[in-house]
Design a protein around this nucleic acid. Structure first.
Lengths: 137, 137
DNA sequence: GTAATTCCTACTAATTTAATAGGAATAATA
DNA sequence: TATTATTCCTATTAAATTAGTAGGAATTAC
């Protein structure tokens, strides 16, 4: 299941992408419009900023804005920042690989074999979808 | 992330499918061989039996056995029994649909749009993979 | 200098997952 | 029939993760 964090993050990115110009959008505005707890959203946008998806401006009239074109913000990257690995098991993850405790031999593991395929199919979608695709109304 | 429950369940099914004949396989044997806590595995196999993937025999020399051919046990079904919905958001689930609390209009929701695609791509794999595919060494 | 905002850290609450405990019911077999 | 080995069932607990809150520091516009 997708965490609320990711869901809220995606909604917020879409909201920002839909704004005209590149003026900073305030957390409060997004929270209100998208029905997201404001403090929670604050922390999510902060994460996105640190990961390089968003820029921010502090102080009065501050807020968040995109620092890349929507067409350059790829869903696979956003998902990794918000949700973590795209693979369903760590032993299949490209960016967050970890060996399983059980499972003496990965290449013999049938769960591994299946999950590689699921990962690849999801990745295909997530790599081919950008924020632009989401924000077109 | 895949739960341990699902992971263990898939391993156990593979183990059973690889046995010769259709003799019942005991939980203890599977647990030992696959390094799964026995009591936990007991409850998992019980779930699989109730869902119609497995049959069981009680008492001495009892155990679990397949009641369908491995080629007829489809991963999409197994995953739904063990892991629940394949979709990452309930509002996109075919078998476990639920409306989102936030989100006034589903058709306008960008998260929904994206997750439909992810679901479809995963489902394609899971519907085309059977226990037979997993259990071939 | 005041008001409005992001930024940061720490904490708490709620939910889900993983596992354990204990024993009832059932079946084989000596 | 007694014993042993197994599945079956319910309840409980422990651990981990997710979701959200609290409070205030830092920064900026006006």
């Amino acid at each position: 299941m997708l965490s609320k964090k990711t869901k809220y993050g995606l909604k917020a990115l879409t909201y920002i992408a839909r704004q005209e110009g590149n003026k900073p959008v305030q957390v409060g505005e997004i929270a209100k419009s998208e029905q997201i707890p404001q403090k929670f959203l604050e922390s999510i946008l902060l994460t996105l900023r640190k990961s390089g998806c968003l820029g921010s401006k502090k102080g009065k009239h501050g807020g968040y804005y995109l620092i890349k074109k929507p067409s350059e913000i790829v869903m696979a990257d956003v998902m990794r920042v918000l949700e973590g690995p795209i693979a369903m098991v760590p032993c299949v993850s490209l960016n967050f690989y970890e060996k399983c405790d059980d499972c003496p031999d990965e290449n013999m593991c049938t769960v591994n074999k299946l999950m590689v395929q699921v990962r690849d199919s999801s990745l295909k979608v997530l790599r081919n979808t950008t924020l632009e695709d989401l924000s077109i109304k």
